[in-house]
């Protein structure tokens, strides 16, 4: 994985609360056996009309969304199904961070493993972002701060180990495998 330090981009805002992973990538697209190409189906049921043409009212189909790498979503984004296809689809489309006041557990974990930053901010910062779609913001993983174009910046939490892996482009499996001896000891001690 590539190291990640900073993301600077304009935002796309989807203010609804509880955007679940079935919306991010509907189940009928989960029959793939690779991770590639899911960006085309990202938010498929909101993005395309029943005849397959783009829905002009949906934010990702508007010209101002082009090139945006930060998605600001309502509370509890990523709830529901554990499908890792959700962060795969967001990344394949071009997003690099998801910002909300609350991010569902499994989606957050899956995002971290793929280099999609789950950024949880305070309610006031979130409200500002919702009210200013398209704002150019900075996310600094090293300092764990999100900075608004007003110059105001807000701290966000990030689990220490995941942050270390992201900053250094490390894969968590490498660390787990470095503990194989501990795992063998555990198995011997517990006769498992």
């Amino acid at each position: 994985m590539q190291p990640i330090r900073k993301i600077a981009s304009k935002t796309v805002v989807m203010p609804s609360a509880n955007i679940d992973t079935d919306q991010i990538i509907p189940a009928r697209f989960l029959t793939i056996t690779t991770k590639d190409g899911l960006g085309r189906e990202l938010f498929a049921d909101w993005r395309y009309l029943s005849d397959g043409l783009p829905n002009p009212d949906f934010i990702l189909n508007k010209p101002e969304a082009a090139g945006c790498r930060i998605l600001v979503a309502g509370r509890n984004v990523g709830c529901g199904s554990s499908r890792e296809h959700a962060p795969w689809a967001l990344l394949d489309y071009g997003f690099r961070a998801v910002v909300s006041t609350e991010i569902a557990d499994i989606f957050r974990s899956n995002s971290l493993k793929n280099g999609l930053l789950p950024v949880v901010v305070d309610a006031a910062t979130h409200q500002w972002l919702i009210e200013h779609p398209g704002a150019q913001i900075d996310i600094d993983l090293e300092r764990m701060r999100l900075t608004l174009p007003t110059g105001v910046s807000a701290a966000f939490p990030m689990e220490a180990f995941a942050r270390h892996c992201l900053l250094n482009g490390l894969d968590e499996l490498g660390y787990l495998r470095s503990r194989l001896q501990d795992i063998e000891h555990y198995e011997a001690a517990h006769s498992v």
Binding site: S82, R83, E84, E172, Y175, L176
Partner: peptide, 20 residues
Amino acid sequence: FGIGSTEVGHVFATQCLLQR
């Protein structure tokens, strides 16, 4: 509990998971 596909790979490879 449920896990993502990357973690499925971790469990296949090590029978363990990194968890808070």
